[in-house]
């Protein structure tokens, strides 16, 4: 929280000094998530493979190359024989800047939780992200690749959190004469537990999204 306040303090002058009026942008996501955990990364003994649909969204305030946003994604994951079931929740805050039109850099806290009736496995980490946009068809079709890495991470597991990193790639399509854009994306996160042989958790997601407003 202290980091977020500091980050907002850093970006406040830029917001105040910006000439344009801030605009709002929203994104609605629907996707499917696969989580593969080694050892007890998701609070289960041994390896686990969970999967399930997710829904989410993100809102941003955008102004002159800067944006501040908050996002949420949730769903229910279960294993193949439906004997294990977890509620899945992700939330994040971000402050982003576009130094050049094709590059967005952002930073912010990220929280991911696996919830059961009895326990919650929670990951908290600070992410630094870099996203490169590459237009395919000017103003209507754009591909992008985004990579991130955790600057610091915590997990309420005994082993503790190690390296957390991930990436996303996708394509954004702007239908002609429409006020929204469509996005297809694939992402992967890999969160390692501290200590040799402690295992890791890998999350994959495929999603489609609808975006309204300038992102």
């Amino acid at each position: 929280m202290i980091g977020l306040i500091g980050m907002l303090a850093l970006t406040a002058p830029a917001i105040a000094g910006s000439q344009g009026r801030p605009t709002l942008a929203f994104r609605g996501d629907a996707g499917f998530v696969w989580v593969r955990s080694d050892s007890a990364a998701v609070g289960t003994a041994g390896a686990a493979r969970l999967r399930g649909p997710v829904l989410g969204g993100e809102g941003r305030v955008v102004f002159n190359g800067f944006s501040v946003g908050v996002g949420l994604l949730s769903g229910t994951l279960q294993n193949g024989d439906q004997t294990v079931k977890r509620d899945f929740i992700e939330g994040r805050l971000l402050v982003a800047a576009r130094p050049v039109p094709w590059l967005e850099m952002s930073v912010g806290p990220f929280v991911r939780a696996y919830v059961t009736d009895s326990s919650t496995g929670r990951w908290v980490f600070w992410q630094a992200r870099a996203r490169v946009d590459a237009p395919i068809v000017t103003a209507s079709l754009t591909s992008y690749v985004e990579l991130w890495r955790a600057l610091s991470s915590q997990v309420n597991l005994v082993a503790g959190a190690g390296r957390v990193q991930g990436g996303e790639a996708g394509v954004v399509y702007q239908p002609p004469q429409r006020p929204f854009r469509l996005r297809l994306a694939y992402r992967v996160d890999d969160a390692a537990l501290r200590g040799a042989g402690s295992g890791s958790q890998t999350l994959e997601a495929i999603s489609v999204a609808i975006i309204v407003g300038g992102w």
Binding site: S143, V188, E204
Partner: peptide, 28 residues
């Protein structure tokens, strides 16, 4: 298009080395 597509396919190999990834990345 090709670089972003290749990145989607290669992301697990880069970011989660040694882990089995699903076929979803190929679709994207």
């Amino acid at each position: 298009g090709l670089v972003a597509g290749a990145a989607a396919v290669a992301l697990p190999s880069i970011m989660a080395q040694g882990k089995d990834a699903t076929g979803a990345r190929f679709a994207v």
